[in-house]
């Protein structure tokens, strides 16, 4: 790592020259507040999220109980003629509720567990063949219509990337106002230990004459739902 030490030495020398402007106080460390919103604010966060999510071309399924969400997803699967659906492990929910509804509707369901390296290519191929991927997000951000999805062996991140239709749900208690709150809630430990993606709408491009086209690499369609259990 001789090059590293040389670089650091170069930087130290460079930094001895006067700074271009006044040094400022240490960088902000604001957003560490607990994000869980009291019920009174939830409605506002929910409607904000729904508005922003639709604005980025997401399709909002509504505020649903787990059972309603499962039924809604099963009927979606029927509508698009889905045969193979990938379901990730829940964060707050038991994903079995989705699995059962889908299986009753005649879909084959792909679940995930720990893999050997040798099994990986085949597992990826299978996931890429799935018609729909279903995931639960850790958090959702109301001001931008964003889902924060954290990967784990039973909940791979590519669940929200490879299938052409993506469904992401989030528990209403995990709805936060803005990005700073979301990063604060996720925290450094979780971010350095897991694969995290912030997802704001379906995959899109504007590379040809600045015209927006959806589904260039990732999902063309993104459904979102907020889970508000009846007893919650």
């Amino acid at each position: 790592m001789a090059e590293f030490h040389k670089l650091i030495a170069r930087l130290k020398t460079a930094l001895e020259s006067p700074a271009p402007s006044e040094p400022h106080a240490a960088s902000s460390n604001s957003a560490a507040s607990m994000p869980i919103a009291p019920s009174a604010q939830r409605v506002e966060l929910v409607s904000g999220f729904a508005r922003e999510f639709e604005a980025v071309r997401g399709s909002f399924l509504g505020v649903l109980s787990p059972e309603e969400a499962a039924a809604r997803i099963a009927s979606l699967a029927r509508e698009v003629g889905a045969r193979l659906v990938a379901v990730g492990e829940g964060v707050t929910l038991d994903a079995a509720v989705f699995t059962h509804a889908l299986q009753e509707g005649g879909c084959a369901v792909e679940r995930f567990g720990k893999l050997d390296d040798g099994e990986r290519p085949a597992a990826l191929e299978r996931l890429a063949r799935c018609d729909i991927g279903i995931a639960e997000a850790h958090y959702a951000i109301a001001s931008t219509g964003t889902f924060a999805v954290v990967g784990a062996p039973a909940r791979p991140n590519s669940l929200t990337l490879l299938p052409p239709i993506s469904v992401i749900v989030v528990h209403v208690e995990r709805l936060v106002l803005d990005l700073a709150q979301a990063l604060g809630a996720l925290g450094p430990d979780l971010v350095s230990a897991h694969r995290l993606s912030l997802i704001t709408g379906p995959s899109r491009t504007a590379d040809i004459e600045k015209r927006i086209v959806l589904g260039v690499h990732g999902p063309k369609t993104l459904y979102g739902a907020i889970i508000w259990p009846r007893n919650g």
Partner: peptide, 30 residues
Amino acid sequence: PKLADLSHFLEILARTATGQKLTTYTNFIN
């Protein structure tokens, strides 16, 4: 320096780069 610094950049980057509030994907690789 910190994770908490990131939001300040993300709040201005997409708004200026593409006129979006946030880009579709913000990927964290560690």
